[in-house]
Amino acid sequence: MKKVQGFTWTVEDVNLISASETWGDALVEAGRRDPAIVALTADLGNSTKIQRFKEVFPARFFNVGIAEQNLMAVAAGLAATDHIPVVCTYATFASLRAAEFVRTDIGYGQRNVKIIGTLAGVAYGQGGPTHHAFEDIALMRSIPGMVVLAPADGDELTDALLAALAYEGPVYLRTGRGTELPIMKESKEAFAIGKARTVHDGRDVTVFAIGLCVQEALRAAVRVASQGIRVKVVNMAAVKPLDVAAIQAAITATQRIITVEDHSIVGGLGSAVAEVIAESGKACAFKRLGHQDCFLPMGVPEDLMHIGGFDEDAVHAAILGLMQTSSDDAVEWEDGK
């Protein structure tokens, strides 16, 4: 296998290695430049790519055992001594198990800690709901000051991690399986925290997507193009801070918005976009795709995405559904008459 080094990630490189390996090497490179970077895990030092950091900087790597609460507290303490801790554990445990430690020690404590939640959504589908992480965004984005990033592929994950390291303050970064197709390398816009990136242009419907669902939305957009439906697909990798201007523009431009995420429709991207639409006071047809407030069964991720209704087929159906609506249907309301 070709060995990839440094920050010169090409599409070819990403084809050779999985996304999770990319960020592991990027972290090592960052660690070489900045001795303040330290890494921590709760017994996932060999099953996540934080292993790379452990191999190169054993003295700056801490495995606290299967103890996620302590993982977050220790990270806060390391940040208090001028370190930049990068914490890596499964998304479900980083959020739910350690919630109060993330909120109080890192969020309220305003500690410069970067939390990487791996196997988000149904990436670990066969583990069942104990290992499905579909509430992590809802929880993390409700913590004041917490940046929440959900990149779409390996390139963007690496860019997001480097942006998180350059940013002063707590960041939650959710990752999938590492098998996402490379799509963001083609983007003309550089990754920036708080900035949405358009991956497919259109003027009939806007689909806001995160993570693996960006490529699902992209496929659906291509599928309906032959029917003359022009779909704009926007990668909303930063769920917080949210690119409010991008949503406001979509309300005006397409008046039809779909959100799709491997996360609950309660509190995730769908809720975040809904909040902006509701406060805009403008009419807009709207559909949230994601976990429909339910526990999905054990199963392979592709099947669960289909059953749960956040794959290409679901986006396709939602596009066709929204195309039945028209802003002309909206009843004009005139105050006081």
């Binding site: 303490g77 370190h83 430690f101």
Partner: peptide, 21 residues
């Protein structure tokens, strides 16, 4: 040194500080 109040947090933070120094 650290905002506390919820019980059971301080020792973990102190462990992180001890590792850090």
């Amino acid at each position: 040194e650290a905002a506390t109040g919820s019980l059971g947090h301080g020792l973990g933070i102190a462990v992180g500080m001890a590792l850090g120094v």
